[in-house]
Computed example of a mutant assay.
Amino acid sequence: MVHSMTAFARRSQDADWGNLQLELRSVNQRYLDLHFRLPEALRDMEPTWRDQLRSRLARGKVECTLRFIPNAEGTSVTVNRHRLDELARALHEVRSLVPDATMPDALALLDHPGVIDTEETDIEQIKHAAQSLFAHALDDLIAGREREGEQLATLIRTRLAGIREQVDAIRIRLPTIIEGQRNQLLERLEAVRAELDPQRLESELTLMAQKADVDEELDRLATHVNEVERQLGQSGPVGRRLDFLMQELNREANTLSSKSVVADTTRSAVELKVLIEQMREQIQNIE
């Protein structure tokens, strides 16, 4: 099944310790390119999440953003009296040695390391919640990439049907085109036929027919179209293979255009190029 590289997923959780918000964004990229923005306290989650992303995604630029807002109301604040007594004795000693020294105010004392004790939030509990959010968000992201991939596959199959129609139309007209070219050349040479070597004339007519015959190009176009259809039904990443097939389809369309001898074939070649380019644009988003 075809997967797109473009999707977005967001999960959040509220708890006594605060709020967690996790976002995953992915866009098209030639390779798998991972970027993380995590709170410092949860930075060590990154290696695990990298491994999980690599195990389930093959291509795309993926941005993972985790925000943590602690719950200030649920955090108790107490003064460490022992630490404050030690600091007061130290300040008294400084004042006895340097009487002119400026003493800190109460807020400065409270800001000193160790004077204020805060109830530590269980960081492992937050990490467990963050891992759960990430797992669900990753499932959502992959489901989104799958849904968009199905839409891309539908668009591509519509273009494949258009290519088949053009190929069939050229096949039907091809004998008439070749015969018309032969008759046209014979009419032009009728006036000087007596001066031409019949064997040479037949050779020129055969060469002209070979140049106008695009049956081989039509066969290759049909083969490539069938292979694109087959790839759309494969499991796993198929974007690079499809991109290569677009190059091959375009090559055959160019050859068909260069060998065109009538306006109908030229128009069909142009329409083929338009359809192929439309597919190529869609395939850029396929994993």
Results as ranks from 00 to 15, higher is better:
H3N: 13
M5G: 09
F8K: 10
A9N: 06
A9W: 02
R10C: 07
R10M: 11
R11W: 02
Q13K: 13
G18E: 14
L20R: 13
L20W: 09
E23F: 04
E23S: 12
S26H: 07
V27N: 08
V27I: 11
L32M: 04
L32I: 03
L38K: 10
A41E: 14
R43K: 12
R43S: 13
D44G: 05
E46G: 10
R50L: 01
L53V: 04
L53M: 10
L57C: 02
T65M: 11
F68N: 05
I69S: 14
P70F: 07
G74I: 00
S76H: 06
V79M: 08
H82M: 12
H82Y: 09
R83K: 14
L84M: 11
D85E: 15
D85I: 05
S96M: 12
P104G: 07
D105F: 04
D105L: 08
V115S: 08
T118H: 03
T118S: 01
E119S: 05
I123D: 12
I123A: 12
E124K: 09
S132Y: 00
S132V: 11
L133A: 07
A137D: 05
I142L: 10
E148R: 02
E150N: 09
Q151F: 03
A153I: 00
A153M: 03
A153W: 03
L155V: 09
I156G: 01
I156W: 04
T158I: 10
R159M: 11
G162V: 04
E165A: 15
Q166L: 15
Q166D: 14
A169K: 04
I170Q: 02
R171G: 07
I172A: 14
R173V: 00
P175N: 10
I177Y: 06
I178K: 13
I178V: 15
I178L: 15
E179F: 06
G180S: 14
Q184M: 13
L185M: 15
L186M: 15
L189G: 11
A191S: 15
A194R: 14
D197W: 09
L205M: 03
M208T: 11
D215N: 13
E216K: 00
E216C: 01
E217R: 07
L218I: 02
T223W: 06
T223K: 00
H224S: 02
N226T: 09
E229W: 07
E229Y: 06
G236A: 09
R241H: 09
M246N: 05
N250Q: 02
R251S: 02
A253Y: 00
N254L: 05
L256K: 03
S257Y: 00
S260V: 00
T265H: 10
T265G: 08
R267L: 11
R267H: 12
S268M: 08
L272H: 07
V274K: 03
V274W: 06
E281W: 06
I283E: 02
I283K: 03
Q284Y: 01
N285T: 04
N285E: 03
E287I: 01
